[in-house]
Design a protein around this nucleic acid. Structure first.
Lengths: 130, 130
DNA sequence: GACAAATGATACTAATATGGTATCATTACT
DNA sequence: AGTAATGATACCATATTAGTATCATTTGTC
């Protein structure tokens, strides 16, 4: 079971790197630093740009930079971008079959675990990773 | 992200059902009750049998039953059978590249979340689900 | 003993999610 | 004009999960 997937992981590392470098950072730099496949890194950065985590600049002297301060970028946000809603999700059986009709004990327990997890996750920002 | 997968879920439901029925329970009964595909349910029960969660009896009047009391069957155990080790796992980058050389902050945070999760999970048994 | 109804074992297939490529278009500095 | 960057998008590869298919074995019933 993975809490974070590979692309989230790479994204976080890229963001950490950027948080330590004032100016524009190019895909090339990140690839060299992190050893991640170039096209994959590009795709990730483009997604971050679309979601307004990064700003991008085209052209020869182009690159990416953080759009906001590292302390304001929460990792749950990044997780959501690459992994969708952060939840532990529940029932597989359709409601009419599920014996407990929405009062499923297991579901409740999972929710509670999820809550604890989110509570801890919410506090983590890029700043707190650097 | 899924805390439990489909087969774990089905297994848990099957175990809950069995915990409420003294005698032998057949695949047929479970299929009818839970609406799960028959061959899939069979496979799941066979795995539970191999792992000594269930006892099985062959032959015309055969079936399955719990090998131990519902209070002693922990759901982490079942999760492990179908999903392997229950952990949130860490770094994707090889150690020589990872900038923090094993002291990765993110990893630590993940471990802590994992610990909280396991603490809650460990208390859940089949008995507590019924 | 034959048959039916159950499980045992195992190999295979299908669907989905994840990880990663490839390609062409656009922008902007020199 | 050329080059070095990103934008957009479609595609491919691999792994995991979900589910099937098939044949063998056991055992109660007629």
């Amino acid at each position: 079971m993975k809490l974070i997937t590979r692309n989230t992981d790479y994204a976080l590392r890229a963001l950490c790197y950027m948080s330590k470098h004032e100016g524009l950072v190019t895909v090339g730099q990140l690839v060299k630093k992190l050893g991640v496949p170039r096209p994959f890194m590009r795709k990730i950065l483009q997604q971050l740009n679309k979601k307004r985590i990064l700003e991008s600049y085209k052209g020869q002297a182009g690159g990416f930079k953080l759009k906001t301060s590292p302390g304001k970028i929460h990792i749950v946000e990044i997780m959501r971008i690459f992994q969708g809603k952060v939840e532990l999700s529940g029932c597989f059986l359709k409601k009419e079959i599920c014996p407990n009709k929405g009062k499923c004990v297991l579901r409740k327990k999972i929710r509670s675990i999820e809550e604890g997890m989110l509570e801890q996750l919410r506090e983590i920002t890029i700043a707190s990773l650097v």
